[in-house]
Amino acid sequence: MALLDKMEAQLRPVETPMVPYPAKYITQASGEKLVVHQVDRDAVPRLLEAVQPLTTVQKDFYDVVAARVVSELVGWLRYRVKDEYCLVGTVNGEIVGLVNGRMLTDKVGMSYHTLAIKQGLRLGAQLFAAKMEYHMDFLKQDEVWVVAESPNGFKRWMIEYELEPRFEQWHELGGVPTYVLTRKLWEKHKEAKCGGRRPVPEDLLNVAKQMILPSTYGQIPGYKRGE
């Protein structure tokens, strides 16, 4: 191995084994199925294509969220973040949103972002619930640290989950006020917030894994991919 490669390898974090998130599907009001499945690093380039158009949308703080998601995904792809994961939501195979985060320790989860690309179906709320489910029910952590960049996020997470304010603990996203989902709060809200069924039928999962790029964005009037 070349010297430079050896140096680069030393910069990579030591990964902790993480149990995978089993895919699930949730029937939407339209009757369509939202499939939430975990992706690995190979999916990052495609996800970047889906997210990047939103980095210029100021409304509802999409610019901050999308830009940070891009950074987090690239950091994950290039082995500069430890124990990160990403769950992707698709409807009819099209990417409609994603959530990501990482394990801070084996007991503490660090929630990064919830990005709803398709609006109007409360997909963000369902994806956030899936993320909390991963930390609490599969990674078996005691708590998850959460911040919100938009008032919508504040309403959906801090208020609706009654998250515990713990401002003395600094979240990795810029030291803004930290709120915490404890196991007790999760058990209280899980039934109302976290839907979905498993296993996902094979044909439905295969369609979901196509991860088709959104051709339009409600947040960007007139946008058409490729134009």
């Binding site: 009001a29 339209s30 109302a192 839907g195 069924r197």
Partner: peptide, 22 residues
Amino acid sequence: HIQLAPKLEAITEDEDALTINP
């Protein structure tokens, strides 16, 4: 304003109804 046609079963009886229609 809203151009979406919900399905009756999806918002009433489906296992996920309370998640999507709280």
